[in-house]
Amino acid sequence: MNIFRLAGDMTHLASVLVLLLKIHTIKSCAGISLKTQELFAIVFLTRYLDLFTNFISIYNTIMKLIFLGSSFSIVWYIRRHRVVRRSYDKDQDTFRHFFLMWPCLILAIFINEKFTLKEVMWTFSIYLEAIAILPQLVMLQRTRNIDNLTGQYIFLLGAYRAFYILNWIYRYFTEEHYVHWITWVAGVIQTLLYGDFFYYYFQSWKNNVKLELPA
């Protein structure tokens, strides 16, 4: 494992921890899109179908379990927790997210590396992850006022994607036969979606003012 991959995994892990911290200690999910969280839970569920059949390393297995467990517990918190669910801005989170799944599924059926159930589900998870952040970005745009933890959460998620691209570039030059168009194209699209957010995040950081997106 190279340093970019590790940095990517660690920023991904940190993003989840920041979100859990916000939900668990402040008992608030204000500004967080349940739609995006549900999509992430589906992404991990369909990607890690090989959790118990394809062993790679202890590290991989533990990380997979953390991402599965955290994504489902976040959804549970927002939907079911007595206090947390009251802070959920339902009216701002109106994205028809399940409609995003159909094009991803159809695309995965036609464009994949191998036509098996596991492989199609894995490819579906790659496509779905690329656009799963959209409901959250739409919600940010609407609420505009973004608290620190929500801002950091999205920043860390974007950083995770950026590090993964550096990881792919590194692996491309250091490993033989390392060409994965599906993952790369989906990954680059996913990272570009954060571009706008990054711009305003750095502006607010540079000028030391509260993060606010333009209407």
């Binding site: 991989n60 997979k64 060409v179 994965h180």
Partner: peptide
């Protein structure tokens, strides 16, 4: 095989 290599990523 080649198709399996990315499965070592998360």
């Amino acid at each position: 095989d080649d198709a399996e290599t990315l499965k070592d990523e998360l």
